[in-house]
Amino acid sequence: MNDRMREVDWPGLFHTAGPAGDTPRHLAALLGDDARAFVDGYSHLWSATLRRGGKAWPATAPTALLVVGLLDNPLLGPDDLSLRDAMLAYLYEVGVAADLGDEAAEIRTQVQDTEPELQCWTAEYVLADTDGRARMWQDGTGLGELVLDQAALACFDLAPMLLRRTLPYLASERARRRTCAAAAVGALARHPAAAARRLELLTELTSMARGSDSSHDLATILIAVGSLGGDTRPWLTDPHAGVRVCAALAPDLADDATASQVLMELERSPQAFGKSFGDMAPPLQLQSKSFQDLLTGRRAS
């Protein structure tokens, strides 16, 4: 892990709070026994290295590279099995940020054409104070937004490797870990490089859905199946309201009358969806993107 950290120019990157030079220390704390540093590190991972709404900072892709290393590290939470689930959930978020589709080629061209300007903008940004950074987002050049596009492109380029490292966890002995891996695969496998494997992955995810004995896990897996173009229609009549909704969110069911009816019922009584999972948080994909965001994406497909 330390070798990989040294390969990254962390002070030359930035995250939510500014320069990312503090990120290696926070990530290292996830493997240590200092409880306070661990809490700070975990908070930093989720609150600083990811943007809201499934977007990336320049520090996001390098952080994801280290997160996949944490997955297999025996020092990560030996007494807390949920930590590896959380790392898979993080990779799901990176997969969302990496989902550029046909925009990737255009962004790559823009980034390559303005590479010197982007480097200068970023170098100035990480040296600026808080007020200076705020002004730079409004400097009228548009370079800041292109730097963020460049960050998303870095996640896009990393997605195939992240997918390879995530796939083994679909066979985990822990149901929750398999479910978190399914969510991550559902996002990462949208990358064009995974097109040849998509049918195979859908077969595996669909089998997982059929074998799930938890409505919460099933709903999470169904969103992943739907995101990859799989058939979620068998679950549109499931007794569980949350499962029905997550099945209906599949983009390929935008013109399906039964799916539309399920979502119309939800719009009339949105609280029913949240209550359907009791005291549990909503499915992983709905913790960073609202139901309305997913519904909008479904309609746009």
Rank of each mutant, 00 (worst) to 15 (best):
Y90W: 14
R133A: 00
T16G: 14
L71Q: 06
M136H: 02
S214T: 13
L286V: 06
H44K: 01
L201C: 06
P239E: 05
L218R: 11
P239T: 08
A250M: 04
A159V: 10
L70K: 04
A37L: 15
S260Y: 00
L253R: 03
A105P: 11
S269K: 12
L188Y: 02
A128D: 05
V126Y: 06
A105R: 15
A134R: 08
Y92W: 12
G242S: 09
D217I: 06
D99W: 14
H216L: 07
P270Q: 05
V225M: 09
D256G: 03
V245Q: 07
I223A: 01
D252N: 13
A89I: 09
A247Y: 01
R108Y: 02
M1A: 05
A56Q: 06
D34K: 06
A248W: 01
A35R: 15
H44I: 09
V245Y: 06
T49D: 12
A175S: 05
V185Q: 01
V111L: 05
G229L: 02
R174V: 07
T60A: 13
E106K: 14
A219N: 11
A259V: 08
G186H: 02
A97G: 09
A159S: 11
A123N: 06
S47M: 09
P168L: 08
D131S: 02
A154F: 05
L286N: 06
D279V: 12
Q285S: 09
D40G: 10
T166A: 05
L88V: 11
Q271A: 15
A59H: 01
R164P: 00
A195M: 12
R133G: 03
V94R: 00
D157N: 13
V147A: 04
E117Q: 13
A59D: 05
D131I: 03
T23W: 04
W57V: 07
H26C: 09
R198I: 14
V185G: 00
A123L: 01
A97Q: 03
S227G: 10
T232Q: 03
W235V: 02
T49M: 10
A104R: 02
